Simulated assay, not measured.
Amino acid sequence: MEKLSEKEISDKLQEFEGWEFHENSIQTKFEFEDFKETFSIMTRIAFEAEAQQHHPEWTNVYNTLSISLSTHDAGGVTEKDFKLAATIEKIIEVE
């Protein structure tokens, strides 16, 4: 998988509300009703990430989920990151 240029990343981010390019990754933060809802969504994301063989860097504090996506093998952001970001957005929309 080939690393995307900053222009390509910027163009693709237009489709993702709340995501930004920072520290060589695309990042976002979500807030949910409580810890239980947050953890439930994290579990759904984990199954999808495993299916895609692409795993997020993330942190969870109570009802807040912070996600950072980068393809370490490519040394930056690739199409894999945007594919997983789109999957995450679909999971969040369902909730």
Results as ranks from 00 to 15, higher is better:
residue 1 M to N: 08
residue 2 E to G: 11
residue 2 E to S: 13
residue 3 K to Y: 06
residue 3 K to H: 08
residue 4 L to G: 03
residue 4 L to Q: 02
residue 4 L to K: 05
residue 5 S to N: 09
residue 5 S to M: 07
residue 5 S to D: 10
residue 5 S to G: 12
residue 5 S to I: 06
residue 6 E to I: 10
residue 7 K to I: 09
residue 8 E to P: 05
residue 8 E to G: 04
residue 8 E to N: 03
residue 9 I to L: 06
residue 9 I to V: 15
residue 9 I to C: 07
residue 10 S to D: 14
residue 10 S to H: 13
residue 11 D to F: 03
residue 13 L to C: 12
residue 14 Q to R: 14
residue 14 Q to E: 15
residue 15 E to W: 00
residue 15 E to I: 03
residue 15 E to N: 14
residue 16 F to A: 10
residue 16 F to Y: 14
residue 17 E to R: 14
residue 18 G to D: 06
residue 18 G to R: 12
residue 19 W to N: 10
residue 19 W to R: 11
residue 19 W to K: 09
residue 20 E to T: 09
residue 23 E to N: 15
residue 23 E to H: 08
residue 24 N to Y: 02
residue 24 N to I: 02
residue 24 N to G: 09
residue 25 S to K: 09
residue 25 S to M: 10
residue 26 I to D: 00
residue 28 T to M: 04
residue 28 T to F: 11
residue 31 E to C: 07
residue 31 E to Y: 02
residue 31 E to V: 13
residue 31 E to P: 00
residue 32 F to D: 02
residue 32 F to S: 03
residue 35 F to Q: 00
residue 36 K to Y: 02
residue 36 K to C: 01
residue 37 E to F: 02
residue 37 E to A: 11
residue 38 T to H: 11
residue 38 T to K: 09
residue 38 T to Q: 10
residue 39 F to I: 11
residue 39 F to N: 02
residue 40 S to T: 11
residue 41 I to L: 15
residue 41 I to D: 02
residue 41 I to F: 05
residue 42 M to P: 01
residue 42 M to W: 03
residue 42 M to D: 00
residue 42 M to N: 03
residue 42 M to A: 12
residue 43 T to A: 12
residue 43 T to G: 12
residue 43 T to V: 11
residue 44 R to M: 05
residue 44 R to D: 02
residue 44 R to K: 15
residue 45 I to F: 06
residue 45 I to V: 08
residue 46 A to T: 09
residue 47 F to N: 14
residue 48 E to R: 13
residue 48 E to K: 15
residue 49 A to T: 05
residue 50 E to D: 15
residue 51 A to R: 14
residue 52 Q to F: 03
residue 52 Q to H: 06
residue 52 Q to E: 12
residue 53 Q to V: 01
residue 53 Q to F: 01
residue 53 Q to I: 04
residue 54 H to M: 04
residue 55 H to E: 09
residue 55 H to N: 06
residue 56 P to D: 06
residue 58 W to N: 12
residue 59 T to R: 11
residue 59 T to N: 14
residue 61 V to Y: 12
residue 61 V to E: 14
residue 61 V to T: 11
residue 62 Y to C: 07
residue 62 Y to H: 15
residue 62 Y to T: 10
residue 64 T to R: 13
residue 65 L to C: 10
residue 67 I to G: 02
residue 68 S to A: 15
residue 69 L to E: 02
residue 69 L to N: 07
residue 69 L to G: 07
residue 70 S to T: 15
residue 72 H to T: 11
residue 72 H to A: 11
residue 72 H to G: 07
residue 72 H to E: 10
residue 73 D to A: 15
residue 73 D to Q: 13
residue 73 D to K: 13
residue 73 D to G: 09
residue 75 G to C: 05
residue 77 V to S: 06
residue 77 V to C: 04
residue 77 V to E: 01
residue 78 T to Q: 04
residue 78 T to N: 04
residue 79 E to S: 09
residue 80 K to D: 06
residue 81 D to L: 04
residue 82 F to R: 01
residue 82 F to M: 10
residue 82 F to L: 07
residue 83 K to S: 07
residue 84 L to S: 00
residue 85 A to V: 05
residue 86 A to V: 01
residue 86 A to L: 07
residue 87 T to D: 06
residue 87 T to S: 14
residue 88 I to Y: 04
residue 89 E to G: 03
residue 89 E to W: 01
residue 89 E to L: 08
residue 89 E to F: 00
residue 91 I to F: 08
residue 91 I to K: 06
residue 91 I to L: 04
residue 91 I to M: 06
residue 91 I to W: 07
residue 91 I to Y: 02
residue 92 I to E: 03
residue 93 E to W: 01
residue 94 V to A: 15
residue 94 V to K: 15
residue 95 E to S: 10
